[in-house]
Computed example of a mutant assay.
Amino acid sequence: MPNSLDLPSEPSKTRVVVAMSGGVDSSVVAALLKREGYDVVGITLQLYDHGAAVHRRGACCAGQDIHDARRAAETIGIPHYVLDYESRFREAVIDRFAESYLSGETPIPCVECNRSIKFRDLLATAVDLGADALATGHYVASRALPDGRRALHRAADPERDQSYFLYATTPEQLSLLRFPLGELDKRETRALAREFGLAIADKADSQDICFVPQGRYSDVIERLKPGAVQAGEIVHVDGRVLGEHRGIVHYTVGQRRGLGLSVGEPLFVVALDAERARVVVGPREALATRIIPLRDLNWLGDTPLDAIGPEGLEVAARVRSTRPPQPALLRWSEGAAGVELLRPEDGVSPGQACVLYDGEGPRARVLGGGVIARREALVAAA
């Protein structure tokens, strides 16, 4: 039987841990690998106090999902374990999420969860169990390079591609990670779930951040950091004070609705000034930017960063998970990375990710990415 995971041993002698969230995708991965003859072990992580989320649609890693993962493992016929990672998840993901929001950023906790929990802690656990690989249900692809390293690629289906959330994966982690759904779309995955007799074949995809009920970030932050949310002024980019707000955590860059202003023109949030507790608003054109300084760059490309000349390296940059990559230049100078977009983008927000690819289309290779440190507005804010 062919080794679909590109591992040195035949499937019957290859142990693979599958991260089972209780959803359709990871359950299908476990079933596919079991059918191919791999020694499959399913692991589900309990990441937070799931009491309030047991019956909430759109959650993940909560009580109902743990039950669904256990039932899927029984159907497939593989051992299944639930590991309590609540304290690790709180420290590495939830607390950082709250601190980032309070500093005026718009963080992506899924990136940190993948980086710190799934691809660090869980991967170490998989190795301790004697696994040759950790497989997940992400819609991305991992392919071997001529020098033996592995590269991360966008999924074949751009509508399902999750590479934006995995840019921080390291080369060492990629050597042990496998993503069997990279060439499938969701329709095909659900068809396989029915073929395998999985009860969750029609289960809805998770929508919200798992620890943020109904998407109300401010409620979570106020509970985690009582007294930390400060009221302040809403200021126009031209310096006019237009009103007051209850805390910058209630706003995100690009937001138009819910500002509570009546000034006769459409206004958008263009910046959050945590130091002065200010929400800065302005016309749509004030959202545009082309220059994006990055921090915490994770580089997966072949060109050494120090070899990138002053003219920059041509890349395709993606500044939101919901937007396609667009042409850009990556610049590297004295240990600092920055991206210059060839066309301005609206709503670029500090704390979000800027992910870099070697092209704009499906299956493009992920070259890395970083956290947007700030944005250089084309229209200056007050």
Rank of each mutant, 00 (worst) to 15 (best):
Q352T: 06
E285W: 00
A316Y: 10
V17M: 14
E244K: 14
T14Q: 09
V17T: 12
P180H: 11
V111G: 01
R246T: 11
D219Y: 06
R295D: 08
P8I: 09
V319Y: 08
V371I: 15
A271F: 07
T189R: 01
L102V: 04
E222H: 07
V229G: 01
H250R: 12
P171F: 13
V315H: 01
A228T: 04
N298L: 02
D49K: 02
V17S: 06
P109K: 10
V28K: 08
K203L: 13
A141L: 12
G312M: 05
F119R: 04
V281H: 02
V220G: 07
Q46R: 09
L176S: 06
G148Q: 12
R320A: 15
W332V: 03
H236T: 03
A69D: 01
R187Q: 12
S142D: 04
D161N: 03
H55F: 02
L287Q: 12
I308D: 06
G63I: 00
Y217I: 14
S116F: 12
A307H: 11
R90Y: 13
G239M: 10
R160T: 04
A381T: 13
F179S: 14
R143W: 12
Q64W: 01
A199K: 08
L32W: 09
S175N: 10
R284Y: 02
A19G: 11
G215L: 01
C110F: 04
A30H: 13
L259R: 08
V237N: 04
G254K: 07
V40A: 08
S116A: 15
L378N: 04
S100T: 04
L134P: 05
A201R: 10
V28S: 07
L198E: 06
I292A: 03
R187M: 05
P158L: 00
D302A: 15
A373H: 11
S103H: 01
D296W: 00
P324S: 01
R278W: 13
D306W: 07
